[in-house]
Amino acid sequence: MALQLSDKSISTKAKLEGWVDRNLKFIFTLPALLLVLALIIYPLIYTIQLALTDASRSTTRAKNFIGLENFVTLLHDTERFWPAVGRTVYFTGAGLIIETVCALGLALLLRKAFRGQGIVRTAILLPLVATPVAVGMMWMLIFQPSIGFANVFIEWFGIPAQGWLSDPGQTLNTLIFIDVWQWTPMMALILLAGLASIPEEPEEAALVDGASWLQRHIYVTIPMLKPAIFAAILLRAIDSLKTFDILYATKGAGGGSNHEAETLNVLAYSYSFDYQDYGIASAVLILFLILICGAVALVTVASKAGAK
């Protein structure tokens, strides 16, 4: 009897070991999977569920299922929603174009070895490591129309004082300037890494063939750098679409008196934390997610087309 039991226990153990061996990859990935489920999938499903209700004031109150009504309301809202979509696209688009051009120029400048290269490379990284809220506060002081330095500076050149962040017409462009100041170095770094991996022979060949500096860059260097450029654009586009900290630190909830800095992120924040309208805030976030996915797909397709 004892022998039988022992045999049984050995066979159970062997079975368990066999099972563990077969499923080892799942067992080890289980904690990570559960974390992803808990931190990404669950909130996403909860957000979708909230977006289909009229949840307001508190999420613990009774709420009614209203189907797609929140989405319909938003898609018909030309006062807050569509202008916010426009601002999100403009802020990201304009920022990306300027950042890509500046970063490319910066990377090409920093490519060749020169004295003090280490110091310069470290210095351009400084905006990147600064806390976004602190950056926002700093620029807010600089752009303050009565006591800020920006107006003093431009007056040295005879340019009249500007409203900057406090002028609804200039707010978004001023914010794009801050974004460019902070994030161009990161893109430049990615492009610099890309440049380092490019073989030198094609460029040398172009030089021997008599190509000018401009021709070498336009026809040889930049086409070879395309994968790095697309990678940098993709990373920056996703991050830029989601920008919240600088906008909130400089203009507060609602994006200013005329909602002049209200992007989709800021709008969702206003609806949830200011208005306690959690249903419609969730709907904004779902539509925003769709926009981000669309943008990523667009850049990926463009990148593949560019690679062909």
Partner: peptide, 9 residues
Amino acid sequence: GPPGATSLD
């Protein structure tokens, strides 16, 4: 008042 009034909290 000072300029930029609409942004003053």
